[in-house]
Design a protein around this nucleic acid. Sequence first.
RNA 1: GGAAGCGUGGCCGAGUGGUUGAAGGCACCGGUCUUGAAAACCGGCAAGGGGCAACCCUUCGUGAGUUCGAAUCUCACCGCUUCCGCCA
Length: 424
Amino acid sequence: MLDPALLRNRLDEVAERLASRGFEFPRARFEQLEAQRKALQSDTQALQAQRNARSRAIGQAKAAGQDTAPLMAEIAGLGERLQASEAALAELQQQLHDLAANLPNLPDQGVPEGRSEADNAEIKRWGEPRSFDFRARDHVELGERNGWLDGDTAARMSGARFTVLRGGLARLHRALAQFMLDLHTGEHGYLECNVPVLVHGHSLYGTGQLPKFEEDLFAIEGEERRYLIPTSEVPLTNIVRERIVEAGELPLRMSAHSMCFRSEAGSYGRDTRGMIRQHQFEKVELVSIVGGQDSAAELERMTGCAETVLEKLGLPYRRMLLCTGDMGFAAARTYDLEVWLPSQQTWREISSCSNCGDFQARRLQARWRNPDTGKPELVHTLNGSGVAVGRALVAVMENGQNADGTITIPEVLRPYMGGLALLS
RNA sequence: GGAAGCGUGGCCGAGUGGUUGAAGGCACCGGUCUUGAAAACCGGCAAGGGGCAACCCUUCGUGAGUUCGAAUCUCACCGCUUCCGCCA
C-alpha cells in the first residue's frame, strides 16, 4: 500500500512513477472519489460532533436534575441523517481502499526504466561457464537415466508440473536445502524458522499477493478458506504483522526452508520440461525486517548472502538489477540472481531479492518504535530466495555432470551426503 | 465434538449507560537531587484520520442491535485459556 498522504499531495509524481513500471493510475476516478470523500467526511464528522455535544448536554442536564425533554426534541432526526451519512462515507472509503490495494509499489530512485526483462541491468558476473568436451545433457536426461527423476509417475498421481525424486538425487535435493539453511543460520545471522504453509487471506493481503493475484494461488476450501503459500516470504513477513517491534530487536533476520505452491496460471507451455517450473517446490527464504534508514544496505547484504550459496556450490551466476517493468507488485528494488544452465546455454533465475520499503508494512501494520522520536514508524521489509532448491538441484546436476552421466557433488554438500563425492 | 471462563493502551490491570480516550502500575522520555549512577521526587507519555490552525472525528477482539448517549446492555462471529472426548 502506498502512503495515502503521497496520493493526496503528490499525485503527479505518483502517477508518473507508476507509469514507469507500466501501471496506468486511474487518475480521474481517484480524484472524483477523493473529492466526494472529503466533502462527505467533513459533513459526517460535523454531524457526529453535534450528536456528541448534545448527548453530553443531556447527561449534564440529567445530573443537574433538569428536564431533558427539550434537548431530546432538539436532536430528533439527527440519528437517521448521521446513519445515512456514515453509510455513504463507508461505501466511498471502501472504493478508495479497493483502488489503493491494487496499486503496486513505487520503484526506487536508481531503478532502470524498462518494460521487460530485456531492459534489466547486469550488475556483476561470477564464475566461468564451463566448456564441455562432450555433449552436455539437460537435467531431465541426466535424471531419467537412473530413475532419479520421474515426471511420468508424478503426472499419473498429480498431473503436469510435479516430479518424483528417488535415491541419490532425492538425497542431494535434501542436502541442498540443509546446506543453505545451515549457511544462513550459522554464518549469516538469520534465525531459523519453521512456518505454516497454509495461511489466511489477510496474510497474503499483507505481503501483496491478494487481492490482485489470487489466480496464482492454490486455495483450500474448508470451514475457513486458506491458501497454500507461494513462498515463505508470506508467513515470515507476517510474523511482525500488527506488531510494534522494539528498536533493539532490529534488524530482524529470519530464514525458513519450506514448500511453495504456485498455480502457474498463465504460464502454459513455458518450462514444461523438468523441474524448472513446478506447482510444488522447495525454497530457503530470507526475510529481513529493518528500520527505514537501513533497508538499502540490507538489500545489498541479503543479496550477498544468496550469492554466497551459489559461490560455495561453484555455480556461475550473474546479478541483475530489475527494471521498472519487470519488478514484482510489492518491490521497490529487486536483484535477480541468474545461474548458468549449460543445457539451455542461458542464465536462469534462481533467486530474487527485493526491498519492499514500507509497502508491505503499511498493509501489515508492522511498526517499530523509533527511540529518537518515541513514536512508532513503519518498518521496511525485505525478502530474498536463498535460494530456490529445485532450480539449484538442476544447476548442480547440469554444471557438475560428467561424460558418463554421473554427477560430481560440490564439496560443501558432501558432508550432507555421507561423504559421497560422485552421484552414479 | 461437549462444558466453563476470558478478550481494555507498548505491557499488566481498574472500569455503577452520561465531560472515561479510559484509574493505577510497569516500561519509556524530560527535569530536580547526586562527583557519577541508583533510589526518591516532579512533569510528560495510545494509535489512526481530517484541518493552515484553533480544533474536530474514529478506535476498549470483530460485526450488527438497543439508546439522545455504549468499554459498560443484547445477539452473532472470531480468538485465547482450562476441563472432558478424539487424535499424529
